[in-house]
């Protein structure tokens, strides 16, 4: 059937809106290679000087390393705790279970600025302000809902009788987890881990409140650079941030597609 005029207009409008979702974010790429020293498109020459600035600046390098360390630690912690919690919630029943699930999803629903206030106020007496431990814990807590959601989705397709068979044949809970449950829900765990990593890698609002001098993540340095607003080095850093996120998302998509083909 030939698409109607209205359908064609709708299709074009949709692609224009989708372009607006992607194209502006990509403007960092040309700006990062401008030969000028202010934010501009590289009409009058291309140069890699801003990337050189980025790679030779001890501040940017240190922020990059810090962000990586924090994101790896926070996503590992969130994935571990979130996965165990999702499995537990799946096999438990009772009045309180939905309430507990809601508590675990709370960090996703509460606006980040309020999470930031809460952590800030609580971290001061605990001595966690401006420490790696403080930021890793905060990011892990913010990321737990992501993992609970993806793992719960994977468990929803899991045949409960497999778990019951394993347990009734005498396998302990740790053995059942390791040999029966975890292999089946691995894609869900992987998805949760990727989302948790990106969440921590990009996180800015909470970090602004609970870090000062010692811990200075990449988004934090980007934020400062952006408010001063003239140096294309910031655009180069934005390119690094986007590319890291893209590598994880695309890598994850390829992995899950390959697994889908294997299953088919």
């Amino acid at each position: 059937m030939k698409p109607s005029l209205g359908g064609r207009i709708n299709h074009i409008a949709a692609w224009m809106i989708l372009a607006i979702l992607i194209v502006p974010s990509l403007v960092s790429f040309p700006v990062s290679i401008t030969a000028k020293t202010y934010l501009s498109l590289p009409w009058e020459g291309v140069s890699l000087q801003h990337f050189r600035n980025l790679l030779t600046s001890p501040e940017w390098i240190s922020s990059f390393g810090q962000s990586l360390l924090i994101a790896i630690a926070a996503s590992a912690l969130a994935t571990l705790l979130g996965t165990l919690a999702a499995i537990g919630l799946w096999r438990l029943s009772g009045r309180f279970i939905e309430t507990i699930r809601a508590f675990l999803l709370l960090p996703l629903m509460v606006p980040p600025i309020i999470s930031a206030m809460a952590f800030y106020r609580w971290w001061v007496p605990l001595g966690l302000i401006d420490s790696y431990l403080g930021i890793i814990l905060a990011h892990a807590i913010l990321a737990i809902p992501m993992v609970v959601i993806t793992v719960s989705a994977a468990l929803a397709n899991f045949d409960l009788r497999l778990e019951q068979a394993s347990r009734s044949l005498g396998a302990s809970l740790p053995t059942t987890l390791r040999r029966v449950i975890l292999p089946v829900i691995r894609p869900g765990i992987l998805a949760g881990a990727v989302f948790a990593f990106i969440l921590s890698w990009d996180e800015i609002v909470v970090t602004l409140f609970i870090s000062k001098f010692d811990v200075f993540t990449l988004p934090r340095r980007l934020w400062n650079g952006m408010r001063e607003n003239t140096d294309p080095t910031v655009a180069a850093a934005a390119v690094v941030l986007i590319c890291t996120t893209l590598v994880f998302i695309v890598g994850f998509a390829i992995l899950s597609r390959r697994r889908g083909e294997e299953a088919a």
Binding site: V27, S28, L222, V234, A238, L241, I242
Partner: peptide, 8 residues
């Protein structure tokens, strides 16, 4: 990230 998009 919202930061990159605002910067854009």
């Amino acid at each position: 990230s919202v930061l990159v998009r605002s910067f854009a």
